[in-house]
Amino acid sequence: MSHFRVFFKKEMVEHIRTYKLLIMLVVFFIFGIMNPLTAKLTPELLEKFMPEGVLISLPEPSSIDSWAQFYKNITQMGLIVTVLVFSSVLSSELSKGTLINLLTKGLSRTAVIMGKFAAMLTIWTASLATAFVTTWGYTVFLFSDDYSANLFSSVFCLWLFGVFILAVLLCSSTLAASSYGALLLTGAAAVCLAILNIFPKAWKYNPLSLAGKNMELVTNSIMFSSLSYAIGVTVAAAIALLAAAVLIFKRKQL
């Protein structure tokens, strides 16, 4: 068996037994349910708690509101939980020294980084798919309209942004000494992207657009093709970050 497959298998076992897979799936499932439910119930609850006699006219909620909840929750809480869950993916092994035995058996350091990334990618994909399918199913169940467009292309953008963030996290972990350091670096990277978005022209290339323009895709106000530069930059950046992670890790004295 190749080292990559061996280490990927070990990573998956680790994520299952240390409850990381469970947390991710349950959290994203709960998010998936909450989105259409919040969209549906918010107007009703507002009406109930309004004082007697006050008349408010709220627009009838639609599938658009449900997807708005989805992109708000996943891009904020969803990504934060993901980064927190995986923040110690490398630092715990380095601080405890669990890799020493395996590396002195000839395990390649490239396989360590790639195996870790592939396992995080698998769990992120499965979790996002869980949230997406749940929200989709209940949105269809609760709102029988066809206002929402570009469902797959918009969730693809969010998925790709998540992949990019995981690459940032892994690269940060090879640089930082602790999981807090890795979190800090990842947060700093996110802040940099947000600052970049101040320049109006930057959004076209900014990976952050993949997590910010989703609703505009759903409401059909922008074309998917307008994000193609941002997608290209994100893919290139993710690959570069992974290559950097491998190079840094190879030079690291353990």
Partner: peptide, 24 residues
Amino acid sequence: FLPDVPEFYGYMRPMEYLKLCGEI
């Protein structure tokens, strides 16, 4: 190689750990 304080994956059983080492 036996390091001064060998560290293992706490969630594995001895046989599983040796299997991992053997596969590597």
